[in-house]
């Protein structure tokens, strides 16, 4: 329903303090949300990384900062290695990698490793976001 609370929760979870007020009011540079609600008329969709089977961002990454965990299937980014060239952003067919301009690194959904349920799903007031594991043909 495009309330964008998932964006708020994502930003807070990826902030240093993980505190709602501090993340927005004090932390500089402010963290960026890795999920973005896109709207077209009455349609809205919270877009975050699809953790593709064959991720083009991983293939495109010039420094090897992006990788896909063979166990969990989660595509993650190593900020230490990222040089902020935005090549992954160009390659992502969903537009779900966001530039963290102030830090000069790309940012993307990491499935909230510190939480049992990713923050965006936990906060969604209308259960529009669900966590479902899809069996892929091995």
């Amino acid at each position: 329903m495009a309330c964008r609370l998932c964006e708020v929760a994502c930003l807070v979870e990826h902030s240093r303090s993980r505190d709602l007020m501090k993340a927005y009011k004090r932390e500089k540079p402010r963290a960026v949300a890795r999920i973005r609600v896109e709207e077209l008329g009455p349609l809205s969709f919270a877009m975050s990384c699809r953790h593709c089977e064959e991720p083009s961002c991983v293939r495109a990454c010039l420094t090897g900062a992006l990788s896909k965990d063979p166990e969990t299937g989660i595509v993650s980014i190593d900020a230490e290695k990222c040089m902020g060239c935005w090549t992954c952003i160009l390659f992502c067919p969903h537009g779900s990698i966001v530039p963290d301009v102030e830090r000069g690194v790309a940012a993307k959904c990491d499935f909230c490793p510190h939480l049992e349920t990713p923050a965006c799903i936990a906060i969604c007031p209308n259960r529009a976001l669900l966590l479902a594991e899809e069996k892929t043909h091995a």
Binding site: V8, M21, Y24
Partner: peptide
Amino acid sequence: ERCIKCQVCVNQ
């Protein structure tokens, strides 16, 4: 003091 300008009020 508390408003973080997230605009949830705006869109709701």
